[in-house]
Design a protein around this nucleic acid. Sequence first.
DNA 1: CATGAATGAGTTTTCATTCAT
DNA 2: TATGAATGAAAACTCATTCAT
Lengths: 197, 197, 197, 197
Amino acid sequence: MPKLGMEPIRRAALVDATIAEIGAVGSLEVTVSRIARRAGMSSALAHHYFGSKEALFLAAMRHVLSVYTAEVRAELAGLRGPRARVSAVIRASFAESSFGREAVGAWLNFYVLAQRAPEARRLLAVYQRRLHSNLVHALRPLAGAAAPAIAEGAAALIDGAYIREALRAGPPDAAAATAMVEAQIAAALGEQTKRSA
Amino acid sequence: MPKLGMEPIRRAALVDATIAEIGAVGSLEVTVSRIARRAGMSSALAHHYFGSKEALFLAAMRHVLSVYTAEVRAELAGLRGPRARVSAVIRASFAESSFGREAVGAWLNFYVLAQRAPEARRLLAVYQRRLHSNLVHALRPLAGAAAPAIAEGAAALIDGAYIREALRAGPPDAAAATAMVEAQIAAALGEQTKRSA
Amino acid sequence: MPKLGMEPIRRAALVDATIAEIGAVGSLEVTVSRIARRAGMSSALAHHYFGSKEALFLAAMRHVLSVYTAEVRAELAGLRGPRARVSAVIRASFAESSFGREAVGAWLNFYVLAQRAPEARRLLAVYQRRLHSNLVHALRPLAGAAAPAIAEGAAALIDGAYIREALRAGPPDAAAATAMVEAQIAAALGEQTKRSA
Amino acid sequence: MPKLGMEPIRRAALVDATIAEIGAVGSLEVTVSRIARRAGMSSALAHHYFGSKEALFLAAMRHVLSVYTAEVRAELAGLRGPRARVSAVIRASFAESSFGREAVGAWLNFYVLAQRAPEARRLLAVYQRRLHSNLVHALRPLAGAAAPAIAEGAAALIDGAYIREALRAGPPDAAAATAMVEAQIAAALGEQTKRSA
DNA sequence: CATGAATGAGTTTTCATTCAT
DNA sequence: TATGAATGAAAACTCATTCAT
């Protein structure tokens, strides 16, 4: 049954399986065999397409970040006001595609990967810079010189939300996470809000 | 040459070596042999004292949390005003003992451990509850019903600060982290502050 | 684009690539994929033409031996005197086609192959017999009953020259090898010679 | 049953098993598992003691060369005349310890190893230099300026004898090999000899 | 004719863990 | 108390070979 043009399909399946497996196991200590099995192929084929486990991890990470990037772009599209743009970035950060069970589980592990794989570190740095710049850009009209600090706080809080979500039982609660970050931004901007637990 | 009363000394050395090794490697993929060598003994002895690698990890985690608990207690001792108590908790969170290079590197990995080891998860839950309750207790007089939400945000931000610190090159910047969390609290409490980037 | 009559071309390309690859790597631990790539085709095609890696090795070996045989024939052509015939055989043994870098590197490995592949052993035996008989034939008028022993020594020395050449850096030194064997023959025949280092 | 001081015993057993296995298979394509089994232990233990397959090969090679060195030393001990010293070196080269079935089989493969492992190449170079220098030293009084060339020829012939022996069925024929080299030396020195096939 | 797809079998290497001393 | 000795189990990675197209 071998068909032509399988490569992109196989690669995508492997990347998805990698994220799922890391998310499920909650650790980078997953075997290529299990990932391959999950993707419906032999481990040899996984090596054929990616060359190494590390490369597979990096591809998975790149995928997660590109999905996030796309999400942000989509949320920002067509929005005009700066306040709305801030909310869009936050909403994108907790969108199902990035904040689903598996992705959240994988997220934390990509931070771990970044501690030993320079390329992973680079990818994470790119993500952080982009998130920061998105936020600063949107916050500048609202907070002026305070924008970078507020952005820094929001970015850290988003990471904190991810890490905590990874530990919770049950499905991620995007609404709660969003509310938490929104509240922080609101307070930082000195907006009047009604707060609830 | 075996001496009496070595047990607590050996155990402490192993726990320290475990934290150092995990911090240095940036991953739980650390061998018992290396930990034992770092602690100046054979891996067989490490097993003799802890029974398993997992148990050693848990002991290390317990140690990190107990150091943190002690730090909080010390910072809180003798303080009266609620606002000062909030600051004390934050200060304790970024004290050298917990926010040193190795401890920060280990921290992230304990979150990873918690994804597969129920006992680790339990320990982390205890820490989170305690932190939350400390903060709520201190914030209640200042924020009333909003205290839990503010505490939640502060706790998540602290975790976010840790995770980001783990990635940075160079020694942890406790001052910056402290300032970031203080700023968030201040904003949430509606305090007047001068902000700087 | 498949063309007709490609078979002999493909086969020759594969044989050449095999010798080159073995010579370059200096070992039989060479992959069919690399050989095929060097020959400009897929490994599947290599299998299509030769059936197995072993068969490809044998074909390469056969090629090397047939090149050598042709070289000997060419050198012997038209020569009449026995002494000249001896020199012709020696010259052929160190001709560029057989004593080039790659061929020398492959040579040693064919001896290795012969230890496990009976067919390779057979081929090598044929080569040895032919070399011996060529030498004896030429030496007989000069050395009489001593011819076989002298031939044996010359043949072994030629092999020794090959094995040593395989280890040297830089291009093979055919002149030196030739001189060494000629000197041995001369001495065995009791000729008067001036020797130089 | 684990005892103390096993290391040298295990190492020696592994080195012997490596030589035997390479000799038996006639190739470096032997597995660590088989070597270890032959030496009566698990492959993990082999790795424990040698670190890698390559290191094991090198140790085996070093062993073979040191055995040969000892043999030469022993044969040379107490001999005075230069001619006797030449014969001693030749005799040592074909002594049972070096010219046994397994050692001969391994020998050729060490030449192969030398093509990819620099350390192996170095070891072989040391052997060649030593052999050459031993021969030159003994030949100088007999042949003067011609000594180096004669030595070179003898050394190459010895290697040739090894390579040819590796291919023969049946046990190595040390006597024949010795006679061949002796005859070559005798002829080169212009000695009067009766030759026989 | 030619190849991309696919894998089973095998190999090196690592490591937690056990045990006799 | 302490450790060298030892191994089973597993994991990454490789490769010859097959097959449908």
